[in-house]
Each structure stands twice: as C-alpha cells, then as structure tokens.
Design a protein around this nucleic acid. Structure first.
Lengths: 114, 114
DNA sequence: ACAACTGTTCAACAGTTCTTGAAATTAGGA
DNA sequence: TCCTAATTTCAAGAACTGTTGAACAGTTGT
C-alpha cells in the first residue's frame, strides 16, 4: 500500500533540485519529441557528466524516458507518470476532507469534484 | 534568478521524504483545524524531536503553519501554498506546448484550458 | 581502421540530510 | 513555587547528494 508513497517520494525528490527541475521544464515544453542530452546541457549550461547524473535520477524516477537517435540520446517526459504524481499529491487533499480543499477545486476539478 | 523556482524546489523537497509526506497527508485530511505535534508523532510513530525537525522543514517551506494552544503546538496546512506548488508544476507543462499535455487536461482543467 | 562526436560511468570529495540522546524552553496545575 | 507535560534546540554521527576530472563506450563518416 505504501509503495505508491515510495514512488511519489522518489518523483518529488527527482524534481526537488534546481537543475533537474529546469530539465523537467525543458522536457515538458518540448513535448513527446524530446531533447537530446547534449542540447539540454548546452541550453542549461551544465557539464555533460553532471547532467547525465541528473538525467539518470529523472529516468529512475520514471518521470522521463530515453531513446537513441544516431549518436544522440533523446530524453522525453512520461506524461502518465506526471499525471500520476500530480494526482497523488492532490488526492492527499481531497481524499480526506473535500470541503477543506475548496480553494484547490480550480486546480483539480476532477479529483475535487464533489 | 528565478525565485519562484527556488520556492518550488524547496516545497518539492519538503515533501520528498517519507515521514514528511505522511505528515503532510495527515495535515491535509485534518484541514484548517490542524493537529498537534504530539498527536502527529503518536499517529506516525515518530520520535518527538525527529518530528520537530521535519515540521520545521515543512514550516520553512511555507506549506505548513503553526499556532500554540495551551502546551500544544498545532500545525496546519497553508492551502494557498499548496495550490501555488501544484500550479507551478502543472503550468510547466501547459505553458509550453499545451497540445502535448492533453493527457493532463483532466488534472488541471484550469491551467490547461486553452 | 581511424578519428571525431555524443554520452555515460567511475572514484573521490565537499556539503547536506536524517536521526538520536541529552539539555533547554514554554505552559498548566497542585 | 515545584512538578509534570508538550515541544524544541543542540551536537554528533551515519547516510545520502551533487559535482568534478578522467576514463570508457557507442555511432558516424572518411
């Protein structure tokens, strides 16, 4: 039962770092087509090996996936994992006392409907 | 420097730990009336001083606030900070390429409407 | 085969986080 | 006032994180 919470903690932790959050943002706005590791490194001004370590954390969290294209490795977001994470956070709120979460109803009309 | 991103990283980090995420969940379902530090410690089976350190992290992140009631200190969630955090995460997605985020539209109809 | 290009892995180090026992702080009751 | 209850603060240690230079690995073009 608490395996879900483990996964949520891992994903929150993956995003709880400046460089990785920036990577995530870039990948989010790039959409399914993704971005190569090298381009991310250049865009963000991060050393390739440092970035590689961060990409590894994001990958292991399940928020990001990778594929090879020639010499490049293209990273992209796993949208289902993102929704899972956001739902996990928001349901914390609405599961208990929905009336206490009225201010959140605009953020998650689905989870808070009721 | 992006101060909003700093705050988001801090808040994600505050929740990226088992005990603190459990505390957050408890406080979320307790709503505005909150829970005393002692009761949280008993409910979760955490040493009082350990819990105090975690509550301090949550407080400094702005996700949680405290007030004294007799000898007890009552902690409760700051809902506006929670919405801010969720919005910050979701907007990452919808701000860039909204069409890429169709799968998320159920989660945040507000941010993704467009 | 070779060299150039793109990324990853490794070992090591500084810095941070989590937990704990002991001491300190604040409030209520006899 | 003295005693007890509820929490926090402090110092120390083990465990984990982020970064770096150097070495390694896969791909392309010549």
């Amino acid at each position: 039962m608490d395996e879900n919470q483990d996964i949520l903690v891992t994903r929150l932790g993956a995003l709880a770092q400046q460089t990785r959050l920036s990577v995530f943002r870039s990948l989010m706005s790039a959409g399914p087509q993704g971005i190569s590791a090298g381009k991310i490194a250049r865009d963000l001004g991060v050393a390739p090996n440092t970035l590689s370590a961060h990409l590894n954390v994001l990958s292991r969290s399940g928020l990001v996936t990778q594929r090879r294209d020639g010499r490049s490795i293209i990273y992209s977001v796993v949208l289902s994992a993102v929704t899972e994470m956001v739902d996990g956070l928001v349901n914390d709120c609405c599961g208990g006392h929905p009336e206490a979460c009225a201010p959140l109803s605009g953020v998650s009309s689905q989870a808070c409907a009721g």
